[in-house]
């Protein structure tokens, strides 16, 4: 049984020599389809990476209660400075804040008359840059709670634009992008299936003869399955190789002001998924094509 399986596998490999042109064209078609899929996924991957990068950048404006003692405020500031992923923390005493306000408003901003009765509290502008891997669910809300829970803090404001943008992307991804990828996968399957089916037309005589001499369907299909596997493996390798070539040429095309985007190549796990999916589709196509 194992010996027969081994022989059939070898036959599947050897059969590549019977119709080399048809096999080569199929291989190129599978490679091209893999390249097309890879280009689409690489585009989505890079949009995702850019959004995840900016998604983690969030600023909080923190206001302390007016009656908080200076030493308590300083303690709170020390706590803030120890928070994870803090990128920058600008602090303002009431005096600093008044000066900053006056500077910002220019000539109309003469608040010297308020110097002895300054209504502004201690405040701070905390900027965080949370990396994508630390952006688990509710991370922004947790930061907000953490800042609000400081003993002297009165209120905290933040602009949720970036987080909302990223959230919106995730929603779009879920609702639109994945169906589009699914649709593309379907196209890939059909292209590979048809290409392999066409290449199998050259072998219909063999299938017929094997069937006539009493070969079981599994016996007939095994060499074809081997062929589909080889087409899938080598075709996806060819496609990924071309994808790497295209990437190496275009990686720096957006790396200039104001974008500064270096196009990233796909991670190994995603490459593995593409190669595996193409190989599986090729094998399934070979199996179904002789039905």
């Amino acid at each position: 049984m194992i010996g027969q399986l081994f022989r059939l596998t070898l036959r599947g490999i050897a059969d590549f020599g019977l119709h080399p042109v048809a096999q080569l064209l199929t291989l190129v078609a599978v490679g091209m389809v893999t390249l097309l899929t890879g280009l689409i996924i690489i585009g989505l991957h890079n949009i995702n990476v850019e959004l995840l990068k900016s998604r983690g950048e969030v600023e909080f404006q923190v206001y302390w209660k007016a009656d908080t003692k200076t030493e308590d405020v300083l303690k709170d500031w020390a706590v803030v400075r120890k928070l994870d992923y803090l990128k920058d923390f600008k602090t303002f005493t009431p005096e600093n804040a008044l000066t900053e306000l006056a500077t910002t408003l220019g000539e109309t901003g003469d608040f010297s008359w308020l110097a002895d009765n300054n209504p502004l509290p201690y405040s701070g502008l905390a900027s965080f840059a949370v990396p994508p891997e630390a952006q688990d669910e509710g991370w922004a809300a947790r930061l907000l709670t953490e800042l609000k829970s400081l003993p002297g803090v009165d209120k905290v404001h933040y602009t949720p634009f970036q987080a909302d943008l990223a959230q919106g992307w995730m929603t779009i991804t879920r609702v639109i992008v994945w169906p589009i990828i699914g649709f593309l996968a379907l196209i890939v399957s059909l292209v590979v299936y048809n290409t392999i089916k066409l290449s199998l037309l050259t072998r219909l005589d063999e299938v017929e003869i094997l069937s006539l001499v009493g070969a079981s369907p599994a016996y007939v299909r095994w060499p074809l399955l081997t062929g589909g596997f080889i087409q899938g493996v080598f075709g996806s390798a060819l496609g990924i190789g071309l994808l790497a070539l295209v990437h190496s040429v275009t990686a720096q095309t957006l790396n200039f002001p104001p974008f500064f985007i270096e196009i990233q190549f796909l991670p190994y796990d995603q490459l593995g998924i593409i190669a595996g999916a193409v190989t599986l589709v090729s094998m399934a196509s070979s199996w179904v094509a002789v039905k």
Partner: peptide
């Protein structure tokens, strides 16, 4: 059923790119 029945056709139905031995052996290999 086909292992008990040998079939011969007017148009031979053999694989032209395979050897004589391979063509004949096919019936036993299956």
């Amino acid at each position: 059923l086909r292992r008990k029945v040998g079939v011969v056709f007017q148009d031979f139905k053999i694989l032209p790119k395979r050897t004589v031995f391979d063509n004949v052996a096919m019936a036993l290999e299956v």
